[in-house]
């Protein structure tokens, strides 16, 4: 019983972290994101609580510091620069916020992504269905899986969801995500200094979190679960 309670708690913490990052990487222009007020005055508090409670040593302090420096006059810059980085651009957006637009990614991965969602009963609103590979949605799915895990008590069920988290993170986020913080570092597009600092820090912090979370999962799954799948055994649905 004691272990289950601990597991649930860890899953809930991770779930909230994924939800938070899902929100922070969503477009500030989307109506559904209107609850996210820029600058996010209470975000530092939440981040601080999370970094203390997560089951692995994660450092959100730089992001907290940057977020604390945001003022109400920065909101418009953050919105505009998010769009300039990820949504609009003459040769497409400078940085990929959707996995499909990342370099070197196989088009077949999108089918697997949707299969993952279907398998676990995760559905998108019609207005979002065209972008199942948006980073915010991917993180929300991780939030969904971890939240589901937090509600479970059977060891096999928990292992099932943890395996899915590990596979999904590895195959659909980590396989391309680093292009964002790397692209931020090499950005030629001029954006406001505050946006540059904020988004650079956000995506570096998120990247560290994702890698830490993945490593933690690897460690905790141990040898009881199978490792990554043989690609050649997969067939597409059509």
């Amino acid at each position: 019983m004691g272990n289950e309670r601990q597991t649930n708690s860890e899953a809930k913490l991770r779930s909230i972290t994924y939800a938070l990052f899902s929100q922070l990487t969503a477009s500030p222009y989307e109506a559904a994101s209107a609850v996210l007020v820029l600058p996010p005055a209470d975000m530092p508090t939440v981040l601080d609580e999370l970094q203390q409670a997560l089951p692995y040593p994660v450092d959100f302090s730089t992001l907290i510091e940057v977020a604390q420096r945001l003022s109400s006059t920065d909101a418009e810059s953050l919105r505009q620069d998010y769009a300039s980085l990820f949504e609009v651009g003459s040769d497409g957006p400078p940085l990929p916020i959707r996995a499909e637009l990342a370099r070197g990614r196989s088009p077949e991965r999108k089918e697997e992504l949707v299969r993952f969602y279907e398998f676990f009963g995760y559905k998108l609103q019609p207005s979002w269905q065209w972008a199942p590979d948006h980073l915010s949605v991917l993180l929300e799915f991780m939030h969904f899986l971890t939240y589901q895990e937090s509600q479970l008590s059977e060891a096999d069920d928990i292992a099932s969801y943890r395996t899915a988290q590990r596979d999904f993170l590895e195959r659909h986020i980590l396989d391309w995500y680093d292009q964002i913080p790397r692209g931020m570092s090499n950005l030629t597009l001029e954006i406001s200094p505050i946006s540059s600092t904020y988004y650079q820090t956000l995506f570096e912090t998120l990247g560290k979190f994702l890698h830490l979370d993945f490593a933690w999962q690897q460690k905790n799954l141990g040898g009881s679960l199978r490792s990554s799948v043989d690609e050649s055994s997969l067939i597409t649905g059509y």
């Binding site: 969503a26 994101s33 609850v35 676990f120 979002w128 949605v137 596979d167 195959r171 679960l225 799948v229």
Partner: peptide, 24 residues
């Protein structure tokens, strides 16, 4: 304030049994 942008359907979702990516 940090609720998810892509709304989850308000419906009961059965627990899925997942062993590996082949399952999907």
């Amino acid at each position: 304030k940090y609720a998810s942008p892509a709304l989850l359907h308000a419906e009961t979702v059965p627990v899925a049994r997942y062993r590996g990516v082949e399952d999907v």
